[in-house]
Write a protein that binds this DNA or RNA. Sequence first.
DNA 1: CTGTTAGCGCTTTCAT
DNA 2: ATGAAAGCGCTAACAG
Lengths: 326, 326
Amino acid sequence: MTVTIYDVAREAKVSMATVSRVLNGTAVVKEDTKRRVLDAIAKLGYRPNAVARGLASKKTRTIGVIVPDVSTAFVAEVVRGIEDIATMYDYQIILANSDAQVKREVDLIGTMWEKQVDGLVYMTDRLVKEHVDGFEQAQIPVVLCATEDPERRIPSVNIDNRRAGRDAAHFLLDRGCRRIAYATVPEGRSVLADRRGSGVASCVPEGHLVRIECPDGRYETALTAIQKALQEHPVDGIVAATDELGLASIHAVQDLGRRVPDDVKVIAFDNTRLATMVRPEMSVVAQPMYDFGAVSMRLLTKLLQDEPVDTYTVTLTHDIVERQST
Amino acid sequence: MTVTIYDVAREAKVSMATVSRVLNGTAVVKEDTKRRVLDAIAKLGYRPNAVARGLASKKTRTIGVIVPDVSTAFVAEVVRGIEDIATMYDYQIILANSDAQVKREVDLIGTMWEKQVDGLVYMTDRLVKEHVDGFEQAQIPVVLCATEDPERRIPSVNIDNRRAGRDAAHFLLDRGCRRIAYATVPEGRSVLADRRGSGVASCVPEGHLVRIECPDGRYETALTAIQKALQEHPVDGIVAATDELGLASIHAVQDLGRRVPDDVKVIAFDNTRLATMVRPEMSVVAQPMYDFGAVSMRLLTKLLQDEPVDTYTVTLTHDIVERQST
DNA sequence: CTGTTAGCGCTTTCAT
DNA sequence: ATGAAAGCGCTAACAG
């Protein structure tokens, strides 16, 4: 029924050990016998059973990928980056969504442990002790992706979010904006969004900054939250924590009868495809989403095969792309 | 080092078989011994090794998910649906991107086979013989997701695309449009897009339909393709095969100095978040993206546990959401 | 209700 | 350069 390594061995008139050797290139095999083995494999349509291999070798060539939600443009792009590099190094990925719920995340770490993944690429809004404990207990190499570890114990790939926040604010300030709003999710929800906020705050004069909290970061709810805030606190520049909030900002401004970028300039974070598909096209602090994934995965492969690593905390560069909203 | 079922057995003073029983609920165990086993498990921090389990039981509780590209809004949403239901039934998913390249797809089927996945949720633009051969050779239960099998040999979940195309065209016709364009990808690239096109064509009078082929389905390239086509063939209604093409259509119309929906009405397929985040908000033939994934996965679980299935070819309903672009 | 014993299909010494 | 044999950690008969 299922073809095993024994069947191949018999067909090629060698021992299974030899078949294993040609399969893994784990030792030199005489050219002639190698041919026979390869022929037998082809003839029988043999496929090595990765599960058996994983049990015997204690390596599954599988990486766990835990993210808040793949259906999000940002995350989806990151996952693509992860998967591409994983493929390149002959790893497969097990993908799981956590909705950024600690309970679920801890469960998932346990599941990945049971699945014997070789490593983990981990993405969350807020790294807490439970996560770190989970990683340690499971003894799995982890790379945090677009996720900061305040104590820098765990390898991670990020941009400099505080600096990016400053850059965004300066960008607006340089173009004459005086009163700036930062549209974001509620404090404490996302470490990164908060850090960007601190960057923005650090260069806007006291009293000239208004923080607009959008309940869940979604366009629809953000739209009304921003409109309301704008009526109470008129501003001439908005930094938005995500593209979706940026778009909500633009529309909120327009709905109030004011113009973008003439009356109010808007710059958003991320640079998902959304930013270029709307009118006015949105100026952004572009994040290297694909690279977050790709670099994280690459770092993980290094960790897994003990390659030398120069930084365990890599910082990718962000850059500002000016378009029509500023 | 690693805690095994033997360690638990010793700690609880029972045999490993008993531990296995309480773990899997595969036989009745005396309440008292069960307690001891559970205590031992907790004390040792034992986690069953899913790989060993998979080898012994020939079931991995892992599902392979092959998609063209997760970074796409449509696919990302589908994958979310798949993963949610998989979680619900205690399956994990191995995700892989094929970029709709047959060669890569066939490779992936092989990889999934080696990984011993229990089943496959498969998404592609165009199902060909190589795929079907791959499924058969690997002997893996497959559900096609938002992917049609012309010969209906393989279980699948779809909407009625031809009908949806008709509905879209009628929607425009009913609102007074006379000359209709169908903005889509090149013929043969996507079976679904073609089928929708045939639906549109079936209700627009001969000579009143213009087909606009957008080289790769991306907004940027589509924008110029549509502008060009519109200059040569003025229309008063456009059906777009995806949200992205719909948005390109709207902008192309506007760039030509005409107005949406007054001069030209636009209705697009899909209803990703994009549709509601732009101005004018886009009218759409809404596709149940999440459900494509969820229902596919649910169907697969039925196949895997031999539950009765009433249809192997399930057709989900689409519906038209009228917004500002028509 | 519980224990014993074969495997599952492979990797990996250890010999030869 | 190749073979023999011992596991990897678990499930699943089969006994009792």
